[in-house]
Write a protein that binds this DNA or RNA. Sequence first.
DNA 1: ACCGTGAAGCAATATCTTTGCTTTAAGATA
DNA 2: TATCTTAAAGCAAAGATATTGCTTCACGGT
Lengths: 185, 185
Amino acid sequence: MVRPGGRSARVQASVHSAVRELEAEVGRPALTVPLVAARAGVTPSTIYRRWGDLQELLSDVAVERLRPEAPPEDHGSLSADLRNWAEQFLDEMASPGGRAYIRDALLGDPDGDNAGRCSAYAAEQIGIILGRATERDEDTPDAETVIDRVVAPIMYRILFRPDGLAAAYAHRLVGEALERRGTAG
Amino acid sequence: MVRPGGRSARVQASVHSAVRELEAEVGRPALTVPLVAARAGVTPSTIYRRWGDLQELLSDVAVERLRPEAPPEDHGSLSADLRNWAEQFLDEMASPGGRAYIRDALLGDPDGDNAGRCSAYAAEQIGIILGRATERDEDTPDAETVIDRVVAPIMYRILFRPDGLAAAYAHRLVGEALERRGTAG
DNA sequence: ACCGTGAAGCAATATCTTTGCTTTAAGATA
DNA sequence: TATCTTAAAGCAAAGATATTGCTTCACGGT
C-alpha cells in the first residue's frame, strides 16, 4: 500500500530542499549523503534506503527542476512560438546550472526512467505549441520532427560541445525545421 | 616535464586493462577503485591521485573504447557512405555496452573534455566521408549539418528515449539530411 | 654513473556505506 | 476514538572506501 502523504512525504520534501540548499551553498562536488542527511534532519541510512546513493537522489532532484513550470507562451504563430520556446529552452539548458541538472538527471538513472521523463517534458511543451498551430490552421510538422530537428541538436551540443551556443543557433534550427511549410494552408 | 613512457605508462595501461577485464567479469556496478587497483597490481592511492575517482577513470576508459578503429568504409557515394556509417554508429552506440560507455564518458567529466573528444571522433569520421564526396564532385553538406541532422538525433534518442531504435531510423535521418542535394553538380 | 623529480607505495586516519534490529507514526478497521 | 498493521525512519555497529603525509622508486637528463 502506497503512502503518498504524511511522514514519507515530509522526509522527501526535506531531503530535496536540503539538496537544493546545499548545492547552492557548498557546490555539488562537496555534496555527500551524510551532509544532506544532516541538513534535512534525517539519518543517512534513510537516504541510502530510499534513494540508493547520492547520484540517484541528485537525479531525482534534477528532474524536478527540469520540469517546466508553465505552458509555453503564445505569440500568435507557430514560428514565433517555436522560436521563443527554443530560445528559452537553450538558455535554461545551456546555463551551467542547467547542464549540471541534465547530467545529474542522466547520471543516476539506471533504468533510463528519469531521462525519459525529461524528454517527455519537452515533447509535451512542443505538443502544446503544435496543437495551437493546428487550431490556427497552420501547416504543422509533427512533434517528432521538431524533436529531431530542434531539441536533439541543442541537447547534443549542450552535452558534447558546450561552447558557442547562442540564441541564434536555436533560431536557425527552428527556421530550418519549418522550411517550406509557411505557404501551405 | 611530461613522461609519457616508462612506469607511468605501464601503470595506466595496467589500470585500463583491469577496468576492462573487471567490467566484463563482475559488471560495472560491482567495480570499485580498490578492486581495480588490486587487479592492476597497484595501490588504490595511485588511482585516486591520478584519476580522482572511479567515475573519472571509467570516463577515461570509455572514451578510449568509443574511439573509432578505422576510417569509415567507402561505398562509392556520399549517400551510401553516410547511410552505412550512421547505421553502424547507431548499432554500436545504442547497444547496452555502447550506451554504458556514452554515459560513463559524459559522467566523470567535470570539464566536458571527454565529451568533446567523443564528438570530435564522430566529426572526424564524417569529415572523411564528406571529403571523399567532395573529391567525387558530389554536392556535399557541411559536417555541422550532418551532426545536427544525423548524429544529434541518434544520440538524443539513445540518451533520452532508448526504445525502438533501429537502422531504419538512421537511414531516414540520412535521407532527410541529403534531401534536394543529389541533383546539383 | 649519478642526480633531480614526478609518480608510486605504504599506512594511518577520516569518511562514507551497509545492515540488523528497534521504534515510530500513517492509515485502516472496528 | 482506540487499536492494529506495516512501511518507513532511527540507531548503532561493522565494513568498505577515500584521503593524505611521508617514504621509496625509477625515468630522463647531465
